[in-house]
Design a protein around this nucleic acid. Structure first.
Length: 584
RNA sequence: GCGGCUGUAGCUCAGCGGAUUAGAGCAUCGGUCUACGGAACCGAGGGUCGGGGGUUCGAAUCCCUCCAGCCGCACCA
């Protein structure tokens, strides 16, 4: 099922396994002390373990053993499974086969695989944000990929996501860029920009600006004309913006990211609101003049001398700083877009700036406490020398070049394995694999950490990689192709007799936990970890339990496990923005 | 100087709302299967969880401190 359809699916009728177990336990814990948390976790020595007894015994003043017995006494597990007290007071929980079988059966009929739908909220996700007339480079990779994954996760969850691509389309550099465009001639400039050679254009404009005083003066005047709304200047500026946005769209397409030109709401969009930001801050008594600049000094921020740190809203030269734009954006998002949550997928170095913006926006009354505002920070992409990722020449690396390189290598791998595809089909597959490799590598480590960009590792079919998961999925699909007739799961019973089958079944039922944990803490890597673990459970199962040579109800059961695993991998990858080809 | 992030096996990383023996992948070594497209599978070795202190019956996980690396700290966004 296509993801966009899936997003509209209604909630399945059966509560997720974890929630069921947890709620029964919570009731029993509640009988000892109202509101006590069972602290239910997956366990390596049984199916689930509840660790909450320890904490509870402390607050109740009884021994853990005693409390555990109290909890067990009032626990009504019914057919869910059994509990035993272990060690100092852990509750080891084993699910009953009937229960797990029922849970798995319900997943088989649930396109959402157990993930509950949320009450829809308006979620603004601010991500990617390249600069007009500047190349997209590795620095934009993480924001784009993480933002896209979060957007898909939130949409799947049932929310209304409004993507905002806050592109840098305003400021003094546009004077020289427009003058350079004029020097080149519009057609020639458009030709250069439309092939995506943004860096050359930018560099030439800069070089002239440095070398030629006349050009410098023209550029300065051009900035003034741009800011005062001169129609011809605005038209030329528009060309730069449109050409760049068209180019960004090509990059997004290559990355398979959902952003469209409609999501581009650049800095310039807020120009008309900046004066009002200043006025309203003034009225609110928050604005202070300092060294000629209009600033807000939010509480708790100090500079290196220990003095209050300003958020500069209007510069000494009366131009607006980016803080003004960010404040205007917050207002716009809350007031006009009715945002209930705003996520900024922006590099970690911006942490303090964003923190100041939120603080000021809150004290100005533009950002109610009810609106969650979160900086989804991420670390750097490093080269194999563990330093900032740079090209061999020491410059920044074009994002497209990186992707092309990945595609080339994936293509070479496919050729080597001689998969027997047409050139075109192979190329397409290589693109899919390359995307999966690059995106998964980015998403699978904890956001805040830096990670090492290593194509060979990322593209490997062995290990914790995107291609490995894609391959796992393709292999499952191939099982179904081999079947003489389409599989029919009507009345399937999961006996899960072999330990590997049980382990897999248990893993399948945990998808909602992994998903919820990932979306709640804005950590897509948790979903990656889950999917990789699931794929490993599957290989162990597949190794121990023949499927095609099995017959009767046993084969139906095993096929159903294959189906659920395939569906889970497919869905999990798709909400991360990674597609899973049927064959590879 | 202040603040933030990071420091876990040779390498790349999970785990960090405390809890029963620190996990995975890659690499290394050993074994297994007439290889449902080996993405094999099973097992072994390998870790003072940066150092020290504290809280706790119990700390990789919480607190303090120190060390190392990266980043931010007034008009470029």
């Amino acid at each position: 099922m296509a993801l966009d359809k899936l997003w509209k699916c209604e909630t399945r009728e059966m509560p997720a396994t974890y929630d069921l177990v947890n709620s029964r336990l919570a009731t029993a814990f509640g009988a000892v002390l109202a509101g006590a948390d069972p602290v239910l976790r997956p366990s390596d020595r049984c199916d689930y373990q509840a660790n909450g007894v320890m904490a509870l015994s402390k607050s109740v003043g009884k021994s853990p053993r005693e409390v555990a017995e109290l909890v067990v006494a009032s626990l009504e597990f019914g057919d869910i499974g059994t509990v035993e007290i272990a060690g100092p007071g852990f509750l080891n929980i084993s699910l009953s086969p009937d229960f797990l079988s029922t849970q798995l059966s319900s997943l088989l009929n649930d396109p959402r695989l157990g993930v509950e739908r949320a009450n829809p909220e308006n979620i603004i996700i601010d991500y990617s944000a390249p600069n007009v007339a500047k190349e997209m480079h590795v620095g934009h990779l993480r924001s784009t990929v993480i933002g896209d994954a979060l957007a898909r996760m939130y949409r799947f969850k049932g929310h209304q996501v409004i993507a905002r691509n806050h592109v840098g389309d305003w400021g003094t550099p546009f004077g020289k860029l427009i003058e350079h465009l004029l020097d080149m001639g519009e057609d020639a400039a458009i030709a250069t920009l439309s092939i995506g050679d943004l860096d050359t254009f930018y560099r030439e404009a800069n070089a002239k600006f440095e070398a030629d005083d006349g050009f410098k003066e023209r550029s300065r005047l051009r900035v003034v004309a741009l800011q005062s709304g001169d129609p011809e200047t605005r038209r030329l500026w528009r060309i730069l913006v449109d050409q760049s946005v068209a180019y960004f769209s090509e990059v997004y397409a290559k990355l398979d990211v959902l952003l469209t030109p409609d999501d581009v709401v650049g800095e310039s969009f807020y120009n008309d609101m900046l004066q009002k930001v200043v006025e309203d801050l003034q009225t609110a008594g928050l604005l202070v003049e300092s060294d000629g600049a209009l600033c807000v000094f939010p509480e708790g921020f100090v500079n290196r001398d220990g003095d209050p740190l300003p958020l500069i809203v209007q510069k000494r030269d009366e131009g607006f700083g980016y803080a003004a734009t960010d404040l205007a954006a917050v207002r716009n998002r809350v007031e006009n877009l009715q945002a209930q949550e705003i996520l900024y997928v922006v590099g970690a170095p911006q942490a303090q700036h964003l923190d100041m913006v939120y603080t000021v926006a809150r004290s100005a009354g533009w950002l109610p406490e009810s609106v969650r505002c979160e900086h989804v920070a991420f670390g750097n992409v490093l080269g194999q020398d563990h330093k900032m990722f740079k090209s061999r020449e020491g410059g920044t690396v074009k994002l497209v070049r990186l992707l092309d390189e990945a595609i080339e290598r994936a293509d070479a791998q496919l050729l080597e394995r001689s998969v027997g595809l047409s050139d075109e089909a192979r190329r397409e597959l290589a693109t899919s694999i390359a995307r999966a490799a690059v995106k998964y590598a980015d998403l699978s480590t904890e956001r805040q950490r830096d990670y090492v960009f290593e194509l060979d590792r990322m593209l490997a079919f062995e290990g914790d990689t995107g291609p490995y998961l894609q391959y796992a999925y393709a292999r499952i699909e191939s099982i179904f192709r081999k079947l003489p007739a389409p599989a029919d799961f009507e009345g399937v019973v999961f006996n899960l007799a072999e330990p590997q089958a049980w382990h897999l079944g248990l893993g399948l039922v945990e998808f909602p936990i992994a998903f919820e944990s990932a979306i709640r803490d804005l950590l897509p890597h948790r979903l990656c970890t889950y999917l990789f673990d699931l794929a490993q459970r599957f290989t162990a199962f597949y190794d121990a339990c023949p499927v095609l040579s099995a017959s009767g109800s046993l084969q139906v059961e095993r096929l159903a496990l294959c189906r659920l695993t395939g569906d889970t991998l497919k869905l999990g990858l798709s909400v991360l923005g990674i597609d899973a080809p049927q064959k590879m």
